[in-house]
Amino acid sequence: MQGYIVSRILLMIPTLLGVAIITFILLRMVPGDVVQLKLAGDGGNVAAEVIQAERARLGLDKPLLAQFFDWIWGAVRFDFGLSMWTGRPIIQEVLIRLELSVQLTIMATLIATVLALPLGILAAVKRDTWIDYAVRIFSIAGLAIPSFWLGIVLILVLLIAFQYSPPLSFTPFFKDPVENLSQLIWPALAVGYRYSAVATRMTRSTLLEVMREDYVRTARAKGLRESLVVVRHALRNAFLPVVTVIGLEFAFLLGGLLVTEQVFNLNGIGKLMVEAVLRRDYTMTQALILLVASVFVLVNFLVDLLYVWLDPRVSYR
């Protein structure tokens, strides 16, 4: 087991290194850089020397390989440098926004789980009835409706029905929980509904598979109530894939909030990323992509470890 954990952690290194290399190359393919955009962007004529000096200050005049190693060496020590656009430390810029994004991710995952588990179970138990069909349509719709549009519709409904529009500035949870929740519940719903769809379908299909197993038949044969058969015997065994899906969604969400944050005008990681990309802020974009990818790889690993705890049959050598 310890050997497995160590090897998995070691395997993360080449993956993340690959992510870093691809990100670095992709960004350097972009025509024009941050200096051009920042200085010459307003149509003002800036002397070539000034542009050169600024490039040198940001280290953009060094050979690509040197730039890459500088960045990687920093990243290894958790020093991501300064944002090329604002000039402030990236860690600082990210930390301000991380609270909002993490909270939103947690809320959306909670909503997704709370929706998905009962719906998925219901659909599996009432297989091929109208309930099953209704749940399936509900979940396929969740996959089809873009979360940003659902967000727009939610804002519209709130506006028309309650003359309420979400506040423009973010209130931290510990400052005023009510204010905070009333602001974040709508984007969380918009995103959570979408992510519940995948988990609902997974719950339904794995539960249906498990219900065919011998031990479920045994449980029924000994006269156990159907609800107990489902909850105690079937559900526990159907849980693994569901946990995987929920875990992966959690990891994806952190980066996937990109569009929803835009709709609700929330100043989170996603919005920062879009801005960084549009401004050719290399250092910021690189750091953010690496952050999201690391979270993804890490959660993936934790989900695998969770398996062992949830299912004694699973063991890693």
């Binding site: 993340l16 980066g255 879009v274």
Partner: peptide
């Protein structure tokens, strides 16, 4: 390990 949308945005 890139979320779908982020990779698309980067490209």
């Amino acid at each position: 390990s890139f979320p779908l949308i982020i990779l698309a945005v980067a490209v």
